[in-house]
């Protein structure tokens, strides 16, 4: 069952179309990556999902209910971490965590205290004195301390150190193990690669690619480095081979993933001494799609 379902979502500001027909579906128990550069429309999409902005066209349903009309009821089951965590400078971190958890409804004091400990947060300090990372910790503790069914996280780790990033990934794993769903917007691609089951890439208000990482990889090229006993003949002329570079330690090139088999069988005739192939990283995918779409990063 789809926990979050977005159909043909359009949001305009005057003449500017911020979201131009977004489609997206997060299934139960799934961690869904939502990637794209700044200004592509990630945050705008999330704010429509939360009923903070009103859609001009299209449909957003959470747990099968309209996200705008049933906002309050739905929000009891949603935990949200904004990209820019803006807190009240004269309240302490502890006060803000309690406030958010109470406003949402269900909570567990034990879970809250455990999270405060794991994220190593001094809750007695006023928010005005927190760094960006600490403000994010406040929002993360408040989110994970709530017993939600859908977690919407908008670039939640951009200010965290690697240690806290690890804690964050553990929290996501726990939430996922409990059968909850996560929509994770990010531009830290290694994080998305590690955590997400499926991914959508957004660009200028449009989703340009959706699928599992496997799916996306098939659409792109694999990086290959090979050393052979004899020079490889006719490599550059083979279908699907790109960017051939001769190095001291062999030849490196990229292969369209669906041509991989035929290319390897050609290469094997020259006596393979060493062969390394690496799947494209998400970064490669990202660049690939952006270049294909003619966009500038």
């Amino acid at each position: 069952m789809a926990v979050l379902e977005i159909r043909n979502l359009v949001k305009r500001y005057g003449n500017f179309t911020a979201l131009d027909g977004i489609d997206l579906e997060v299934k139960q128990g799934e961690v869904y990556g939502f990637i794209g550069p700044n200004g592509a429309g990630k945050t705008t999409t999330i704010r429509v999902v939360l009923g903070i902005l009103r859609a001009d066209a299209g449909e957003v349903r959470i747990f099968g209910k309209d996200a705008w009309r049933h906002a309050v009821e739905l929000h009891k089951r949603i935990a949200y971490v904004p990209g820019d965590v803006n807190l009240w400078p004269n309240l302490t971190g502890g006060e803000v965590i309690d406030l958010f958890v109470r406003l949402r409804g269900k909570s567990s004091a034990a879970r809250r205290d455990e999270l405060v400990r794991r994220f190593d947060l001094d809750t007695s300090k006023k928010c005005g004195t927190y760094s960006k990372g600490n403000r994010q910790k406040v929002a993360l503790v408040a989110a994970f301390a709530s017993d939600a069914d859908l977690y919407i996280l908008d670039e939640p780790t951009s200010g965290l150190d690697p240690l806290m990033e690890r804690v964050f990934q553990e929290c996501i794993a726990e939430v996922k193990a409990a059968g909850k769903s996560v929509l994770l917007s990010s531009h830290i691609l290694s994080e998305v690669e590690r955590l997400c089951d499926r991914v959508s890439i957004i660009r200028q208000g449009k989703i340009i690619e959706t699928g599992t990482l496997e799916d996306l990889r098939h659409l792109t090229r694999t990086n290959v480095r090979v050393q052979t006993s004899r020079p490889i003949e006719g490599l550059r002329e083979l279908k699907g081979v790109h960017n051939v570079v001769e190095t001291e330690r062999g030849v490196t090139f990229q292969v369209d993933t669906d041509e991989l088999g035929s290319v390897i069988s050609h290469v094997s005739r020259f006596g393979i001494l060493d062969l390394q192939s690496a799947p494209p990283t998400l970064e490669d995918l990202f660049m690939h799609h952006y270049k294909n779409a003619g966009g500038e990063l």
Partner: peptide, 11 residues
Amino acid sequence: WRVDTVLAAAV
């Protein structure tokens, strides 16, 4: 930008 987080809760 502090109203978002309040409205994102069940308010």
